[in-house]
């Protein structure tokens, strides 16, 4: 279980998240929606401790942390190990081959022997459909391939949660489809996923839960049936219409 309560984060004087409380159930796919600048990335990055919110509680399984008191380096490493991040612009390691990108964390962080890490990496690259590019460098990949490698890299760490920040926003529709297929498969395997996306059609297919953020506050937190229901508030209806280009 991953949960934050009363989470507040500012950049300088600009308070970006205002006392947010939300939980991300295990083995479910939580989709985070919201307009640009609403704080979606900041929320996701806070879960991985790439951002340090100034106050709020953070619960991971049975461990409880208080952002105001700070989280020790050791706990930070533990949490990061269990929550992998997939970025919009992939952030693969350019100096390592695709295979080594997937092996790196297993060897350096999990301490697996090289042989074992390599076998596991091949398996994961097959799973995401880029095994044929295992010996290529990231600069030689298409965007869709690169993002699937990034997903394999995060899976390799056997994390409890995978956090994906607009994983398909930099891709053309066909490459996006390839990545979404992989994500849908992960969803069907009942992995714990948190996905920030602007793709409502995809959200509708995979979301067990939807969180809608606006101006650093949660306007909706519930099932996707409720989110897309006709009885929804007018603000969210407008958002859905805009995102699906229902009225141009």
């Amino acid at each position: 279980m991953l949960k934050v309560q009363q989470l507040t984060k500012s950049f300088g004087k600009n308070e970006v998240l205002h006392q947010i409380s939300v939980d991300f159930p295990e083995h479910e796919t939580t989709v985070v929606l919201g307009p640009s600048g609403s704080g979606k990335s900041t929320l996701l990055r806070s879960l991985n401790l790439l951002e340090h919110p100034e106050s709020g509680q953070y619960a991971f399984d049975n461990r409880h942390f208080d952002f105001a008191k700070g989280i020790t380096a050791k706990d930070t490493l533990m949490i990061r190990r269990q929550t992998e991040m997939v970025f919009q612009d992939y952030n693969l390691f350019p100096h390592l081959t695709v295979l080594k990108n997937v092996m790196e964390g297993q060897i350096q962080v999990l301490g697996l022997p090289k042989k074992e890490a390599e076998a596991k990496s091949w398996e994961l690259l097959k799973k995401v459909g880029v095994a044929s590019r295992a010996q290529a460098y990231p600069s030689q990949l298409s965007g869709g391939q690169a993002q699937r490698v990034a997903i394999a890299r995060s899976l390799a760490m056997q994390p409890k949660y995978i956090l994906l920040d607009e994983p398909t926003s930099a891709l053309d529709p066909e490459a996006e489809l390839e990545v979404l297929k992989v994500l849908k498969q992960l969803h069907e395997e009942n992995r714990s996923l948190v996905i920030v996306t602007h793709n409502l059609a995809f959200a509708q297919q995979v979301a067990d839960k939807i969180v809608f953020l606006e101006d650093g506050q949660i306007l909706f937190n519930g099932t996707q049936e409720a989110f897309f229901s006709p009885k929804q508030t007018s603000r969210i209806k407008t958002f859905i219409q805009a995102m699906t280009f229902a009225q141009i």
């Binding site: 991985n48 790439l50 490493l77 533990m78 990061r80 190990r81 929550t83 992998e84 991040m85 970025f87 952030n91 693969l92 390691f93 790196e104 964390g105 350096q108 962080v109 890299r153 760490m157």
Partner: peptide, 9 residues
């Protein structure tokens, strides 16, 4: 960030 996210020191 990608390296830290993996849990590296």
């Amino acid at each position: 960030e990608a390296a830290y996210a993996l849990g590296m020191t």
